[in-house]
Write a protein that binds this DNA or RNA. Structure first.
Lengths: 351, 351
DNA sequence: CTGAAAGCGCTTACAG
DNA sequence: CTGAAAGCGCTTACAG
C-alpha cells in the first residue's frame, strides 16, 4: 500500500513508523553507518509506505555541499553556448551535480547579480563564460566575493586581473589563420564583423597581425562597428547591420568578409543574400564556428571552428577536480588552457 | 576596511561584531521586523566588514521555499528548446527564481531520475518538456511523486493520463496545413520525416488527415522510419538518414518532403544537398520551426513555425501563478493551452 | 547495532 | 525596538 497525500513526510515520520530513532532511520536511508538488516528492512518499508523523499536542503545544511554548479553564459540560444551547456551538464550529471544556468544577455550587472545569488545558494562550483573583456568591475567583484572560497573556472574568455583557471580557444590564432587564408587568395580589403567594445578583441588582434605580417596597411573603416552605433550584442541583427553597412558604404569597398562569431556569421549571410551579392565572386566569406547548414549553403561556408566539446569537457573535468580537492598549489590553480581552432576550408572564399 | 579571508561568516558573527542579537541582525539583513536606524546602521557596517553573504540554504530551510525552478528538456542544443529555456529563464529571473536545466537526451530513465532529485532539492516549481509520447511509466511516476505537491507544468508535448496544466503548439494542425499546402501544389507522394516511436505522433496524424481529406491513399512507406532502424533521437543525423533512404529507395519515389522538427529539417536539407537534388524541382520541401538561415538558403525554406516565445511566456506566467497560489480549482489546474502554428511560405515548395 | 543530543544558519513567534 | 528560545530536517560524534 502506498499512502498518497499532500503531506511531506520527514525522516522522523519514517523513524516513528519503523519504531526506531531518527538516527537509525537516517543511517539506513543515507547509507552511512551500520544497521542490522532487519532494522534496515523495516525502515525501508516505512519510507516506501510514506513515499518519503529526502530533503536535500536539510542535507546540504549539514554536509556543507549542494551538489549544484552554476553556469553563467551570455546567451543560451547561441549554439556555441548551448553546446557548452549541454556537454557540461552531461559531464557533471554523471558525477551527481545539477547545473543552474544563468543568462546574462551580455549585461554586466546581471552577471554580477547572478554571481552573488549563486553564492548565496552555496553552489559547489562555478563556471563563467563572461560576456566581457577584462572588465575591472567584474574582476574586482569576483575577486572579492569568490577568490579561494569556491571553485571557479573561466571559460571562453579570460577575465583580466583574475588569477583563475581558464579554458579558452586560441582566438588570436583563429583569426590570424583565417585572415592569412584570405590574403593568400589575393584579398587586401578584408572587412571584419565583430564588435570591438565587446568580447572579440583577441580575434580582431589576430586579424591585425595577419595584415601586418603581410604588409597590408590597416584600415580602421574595415573593422566592425564603424558607422553602426551602439554595438555590443554580437547577435544576428548586428551582424546583418554591420555587413550591410560594410558592403554598401563607398568608404569600405571590401572584397572579403570575416565574421567573428556564429551569430554575426548568420547575420552577415543574411545581409549578403539580401543585397543580392554572390559568394565568393562578389565577396569572399569566412564565418566563425561550424554549423549544421554550413555544407548545405551555396557555396558551402568556410569557417573557423572551435573545439567546443573539448572546451566543455576539459572545463568540466577541471571543475570537478577543483571541487574534489580545493587546495591546490597556486601554479596549478592558475593554469590556462588554450585550445587550437581549425580553419575548415569550403567554397565560400573561392579557394 | 574589508576583511578578506577564507572564512564564511554567519549572521552570528555579524551580530557579535555589531553588538546585537542574531535575531536583530536577521531583522536588519533580512528586511523583516523593525529596528532602530542606529542599530540597522551598525549591523550593516558589521556585515560589510565581514563581507557577509547570507546562506540561502538556511533560509530555505526556514522559509520552505528555494526560489528555484526545474526545467527539463530533451536537448538544450535544439534551438526550439534553447529558445524556451532562455525565455523562461528571463521571465522567471525577473521574479527572483533561478532555473535548473536538465537534459534528458530523450532518455526516459534520465527524465525520471531528474524529477526525483529536483524534488529532493525542493524546487518551487517544475516545467517539463518531456521527450515522450504519453508514456505510462513517466505518467505514473510523476503522478505518484508530484501531483498536487509541487506546481508542475507540461510544455511542448502532453503526457497522457496526467491532469496537469499544459502549453503546447497545435501540432496536428501545423502538419495538416503543411501537407494540404503541398497537395494543393499537386503533390501526391509526400514523404514525412519524423520518428513515429518518439514525440511526433500528432504531427503524423495531421499529415494523415490531410491526405484523407484530399482523397489521397496513405502509403506507410512514405512515413518516417521505414527502412531505417532504431529511430528515436529525432536529430540531424537521423533526419539525414531517413531523407537519403526516402529519396533513393525505389519504393518511395516522393515528390515532396515534410520534416517534422527542426533538427530533422537540417538533416533532410543535408541529404538533399548531398544527393545533388534541386529544391523545388526535384523535390519540394517544408521544414519545421523557422531558423535564422531559412531566408538565406537557395531557395528560401518554407516552414511550419511555432510561437516558441509565446509558449515560454505563457508557461512561465502560469507557473509563477501556480507557485503563488498553489490551491486552484481542478478545472483551472488542468486547462490546456494550445497555440496555433503558422505556415511561412517561401520558395522551397515552388509556390 | 542503536539512541539521545547537539548543531548546521537562518527565521519567527513570544515576551518584555 | 530588542532578545532568548524554539525549530526547519537532516547528520554526526558520543555513549552505551
Amino acid at each position: 500500500m502506498v499512502i498518497n497525500d499532500k503531506k511531506e513526510y520527514t525522516i522522523k515520520d519514517v523513524a516513528i513508523l519503523a519504531g526506531v530513532s531518527t538516527a537509525t532511520a537516517g543511517r539506513v536511508l543515507g547509507g552511512y553507518g551500520s544497521v542490522s538488516s532487519k532494522t534496515a528492512r523495516s525502515v525501508m518499508e516505512a519510507a516506501q509506505k510514506l513515499n518519503y523523499i529526502p530533503n536535500a536542503i536539510a542535507q546540504s545544511m549539514k554536509k556543507r555541499n549542494t551538489n549544484t554548479v552554476g553556469l553563467i553564459v551570455a546567451n543560451i540560444c547561441n549554439p556555441y553556448f548551448s553546446t557548452i551547456a549541454k556537454a557540461t551538464e552531461e559531464h557533471l550529471a554523471k558525477h551527481g551535480y545539477h547545473v543552474i544556468i544563468c543568462n546574462t544577455d551580455e549585461d554586466l550587472d546581471k552577471e554580477i547579480s547572478y554571481i552573488k545569488t549563486l553564492y548565496e545558494k552555496r553552489i559547489d562550483g562555478l563556471m563563467i563564460a563572461t560576456a566581457f573583456k577584462g572588465n575591472e568591475k567584474i574582476s574586482e567583484e569576483i575577486g572579492r566575493i569568490y577568490d579561494g572560497k569556491i571553485p571557479t573556472l573561466i571559460i571562453d574568455r579570460e577575465i583580466a586581473g583574475l588569477s583563475l583557471p581558464t579554458v579558452t580557444s586560441d582566438n588570436f590564432r583563429g583569426a590570424y589563420d583565417a585572415t592569412s587564408h584570405l590574403i593568400r587568395l589575393g584579398h587586401k580589403r578584408i572587412g571584419v564583423i565583430g564588435t570591438t567594445i565587446s568580447t572579440l578583441y583577441q580575434r580582431v588582434d589576430g586579424y591585425k597581425k595577419a595584415l601586418m605580417d603581410n604588409g597590408i596597411p590597416l584600415d580602421q573603416d574595415l573593422i566592425a562597428n564603424k558607422g553602426v552605433p551602439n554595438l555590443q550584442a554580437g547577435d544576428v541583427r548586428e551582424g546583418k547591420e554591420i555587413a550591410i553597412h560594410m558592403l554598401t558604404s563607398s568608404k569600405t569597398k571590401v572584397t572579403a568578409i570575416l565574421a567573428l562569431n556564429n551569430l554575426l556569421t548568420f547575420g552577415a549571410l543574411q545581409a549578403i543574400r539580401e543585397l543580392g551579392l554572390k559568394i565568393p565572386d562578389d565577396v569572399a566569406f569566412i564565418g566563425w564556428d561550424d554549423f549544421e547548414l554550413a555544407t548545405v549553403m551555396n557555396p558551402p561556408v568556410t569557417v573557423v571552428n572551435q573545439s567546443t566539446g573539448d572546451i566543455a569537457a576539459i572545463a568540466s573535468s577541471r571543475l570537478l577536480q577543483m571541487m574534489d580537492e580545493p587546495a591546490q598549489d597556486e601554479a596549478d590553480r592558475n593554469r590556462k588552457v588554450v585550445l587550437a581552432t581549425q580553419l575548415i576550408v569550403r567554397g565560400s572564399c573561392g579557394a
